[in-house]
Computed example of a mutant assay.
Amino acid sequence: MEYGLHDIVVMKKPHPCHKSDQWEIIRMGADIKIKCQGCGAVVMFSRKTFEKKLKKVVVHQSEE
């Protein structure tokens, strides 16, 4: 699955804030940092863990 910086993604498990299940990718490298679109919480995963937990890409930044 292809994803890039500032794409909006959905993870397999929703965030406990229950306001949103969508996340924005805010940093990419060996680690990937994502930000909850509901409450603004920031979570960092290794790339391998992120790809394992990723469900789908909702919006590609290049489409906007």
Rank of each mutant, 00 (worst) to 15 (best):
M1Y: 08
M1W: 03
M1H: 13
M1R: 07
E2H: 14
Y3N: 06
G4S: 15
G4N: 13
H6A: 09
H6F: 12
D7S: 09
D7W: 00
I8T: 10
I8H: 06
V9F: 05
M11N: 08
M11C: 12
M11Q: 07
K13M: 09
K13V: 15
P14V: 07
P14M: 01
H15A: 13
H15E: 07
H15R: 06
C17H: 03
H18M: 14
K19C: 04
K19Q: 05
S20P: 03
D21P: 08
D21N: 11
D21K: 12
Q22L: 13
Q22I: 07
Q22M: 14
Q22D: 07
Q22R: 13
Q22A: 13
W23K: 09
W23I: 05
E24L: 14
E24W: 05
I25V: 10
I25H: 03
I25P: 02
I26P: 04
I26D: 15
R27M: 13
R27C: 08
M28C: 13
M28I: 06
M28N: 09
M28G: 03
G29I: 08
G29E: 04
I32M: 00
I32L: 03
K33S: 04
K33D: 10
I34K: 00
I34Q: 01
K35L: 02
K35R: 15
Q37E: 13
G38W: 00
G38N: 03
G38R: 00
C39Q: 01
A41V: 02
A41I: 15
V43Y: 09
M44T: 11
F45R: 03
S46D: 10
S46A: 11
S46G: 11
S46P: 00
R47Y: 10
K48S: 14
F50V: 12
F50Y: 07
E51G: 04
E51P: 03
K52P: 06
K52C: 15
K52G: 14
K53H: 05
L54S: 02
K55P: 05
K55R: 10
K55M: 11
K55V: 05
K56V: 14
K56P: 03
V57N: 04
V57H: 03
V57K: 02
V57S: 10
V58G: 03
V58Y: 02
V59N: 11
V59P: 01
V59I: 10
V59E: 08
H60K: 14
Q61F: 11
Q61K: 09
S62G: 08
E63Y: 09
E63K: 07
E63R: 07
